[in-house]
C-alpha cells in the first residue's frame, strides 16, 4: 500500500529502542552540529511561518483583528467551510469503515488493486481533482447540458426550474472536497483492522451476536481511536483544501467561497490584516489537529489503540 500521506500511522508499533544510554555516541561537536542544522531547518520552515500568521494578523492591533471577523463574507465562508466538512467527513467515514471491513476482514482476488485504487486521490494534484469534476458536471461536461444553466431540452429545463447547479456552486465544492479527502479514514483503518485480526468477531458470532451487534459492540470499540485519528486528519484537509475547491468554486463572494479561498481574495486585495486574521483561524485549526493527533498517538502507545 502506498503511503502517499505518510503520516505516522497508529498501526506503526512503538519501538523498544528509544533514546537511552548508549555505548557509542558521536562526539559532542558532531551532535551539536546535527542538532543545530535540524533545529534551524525546523525554525525556518515550520516555526517562522506559524508565528508569521499570528504576527501579521495582529499587526494593527486586537480591534482590527477582531473586526476582520465581522465581515459577512468571512462569516458565510466560515459557514460554507463547516458545511463542506460536515458532509465530506461523514461520507468518507462511512466509506472508510466499509472499505476497511471488506479489505481487512476478508480475502478476495483484487484486494491489493482495490487498496491501491483507494490511495489514488493522494497521487492526483489538487488542481486536477477539481478539473475532473468540471469535466463531468461543467457546462461542456458529460452531465452539463442536463443541469442548471444547461441547454438540454428536457432535463436542462427541469434542473433550471429547480436551479440545481454543481460546478461553481456548493455541490461541486463538496464533491471536490470528498475526492481529496477520500483515502484518509480508510487508509488509517485498514492496517489497524488487519493487525487486530478477526478473532474477537468470531467469538462474538459464536456467542450468538448478530452481524450488526458484532460490528457495533466489538469492532467499533476496538477501532475507535483509529477512527478518530482518521477523522481529524480528514477534517483538517477538508477545511483547508484550496486547489481543488478553487477550480470548482467560481469564487462568488458570500456564496461559493470557503475560508481558504477567502484568504486568497483578501490577500489579492492587499487586505493583509484580514487575510492573516482568517488564516490565523485556519492555523489554530491546524494546531488543534496536531494536538489531538499527538494525544491519540500517545494513547495508542500507552495501551492499545
Amino acid at each position: 500500500m502506498a503511503a502517499l500521506a505518510a503520516t505516522s500511522s497508529l498501526a506503526v508499533k512503538p519501538s523498544p529502542h528509544g533514546a537511552g544510554p548508549r555505548v557509542i555516541r558521536n562526539p559532542w561537536w558532531v551532535r551539536a552540529f546535527f542538532m543545530t542544522v535540524a533545529l534551524l531547518f525546523v525554525l525556518c520552515f515550520l516555526v517562522l511561518p506559524l508565528v508569521a500568521v499570528f504576527t501579521e494578523a495582529l499587526r494593527k492591533g486586537m480591534s482590527a483583528y477582531f473586526h476582520s471577523f465581522t465581515d459577512p463574507d468571512v462569516l458565510s465562508a466560515l459557514r460554507l467551510t463547516l458545511l463542506t466538512a460536515a458532509i465530506a467527513v461523514p461520507a468518507n467515514l462511512v466509506f472508510g469503515v466499509a472499505a476497511a471491513w471488506c479489505i481487512a476482514k476478508f480475502d478476495f482476488y483484487g484486494k491489493s488493486l482495490l487498496t491501491t485504487l483507494i490511495d489514488l486521490p493522494f497521487a492526483v494534484s489538487p488542481v486536477i481533482s477539481g478539473l475532473i469534476y468540471v469535466l463531468v458536471f461543467g457546462l461542456q461536461g458529460w452531465f452539463g447540458p442536463y443541469l442548471g444553466a444547461g441547454d438540454h431540452p428536457w432535463f436542462g429545463a427541469w434542473f433550471n426550474a429547480q436551479d440545481i447547479r454543481i460546478i461553481f456552486a456548493v455541490p461541486g465544492i463538496v464533491l471536490a472536497t470528498i475526492f481529496v479527502t477520500f483515502p484518509f479514514v480508510a487508509r488509517e483503518l485498514i492496517p489497524l483492522m488487519q493487525a487486530q485480526g478477526n478473532d474477537e468477531e468470531y467469538a462474538a458470532l459464536t456467542l450468538g451476536a448478530s452481524g450488526w451487534q458484532t460490528f457495533w459492540r466489538v469492532t467499533v470499540p476496538n477501532i475507535k481511536w483509529g477512527l478518530f485519528y482518521g477523522v481529524i486528519l480528514c477534517n483538517a484537509r477538508a477545511m483547508g483544501e484550496f486547489g481543488a475547491v478553487s477550480v470548482v468554486s467560481g469564487h462568488i463572494r458570500g456564496e461559493t467561497n470557503t475560508l481558504p479561498l477567502h484568504v486568497e481574495i483578501l490577500y489579492n486585495e492587499y487586505n493583509f490584516v484580514a487575510a492573516f486574521a482568517v488564516s490565523s483561524l485556519l492555523a489554530l485549526l491546524a494546531l488543534l489537529t496536531l494536538l489531538l493527533k499527538s494525544l491519540v498517538e500517545w494513547r495508542a502507545k500507552k495501551g492499545g489503540a
Binding site: L50, A52, G240, L259, A275, S279, L290
Partner: peptide, 18 residues
Amino acid sequence: GLVDLPFALPTAVAGIAL
C-alpha cells in the same frame, strides 16, 4: 509534533505565511 504541520496547515495559509 510540529513536523506534521505541512499536512495540517491549509496550503493557502502556508503560501501567504512563507
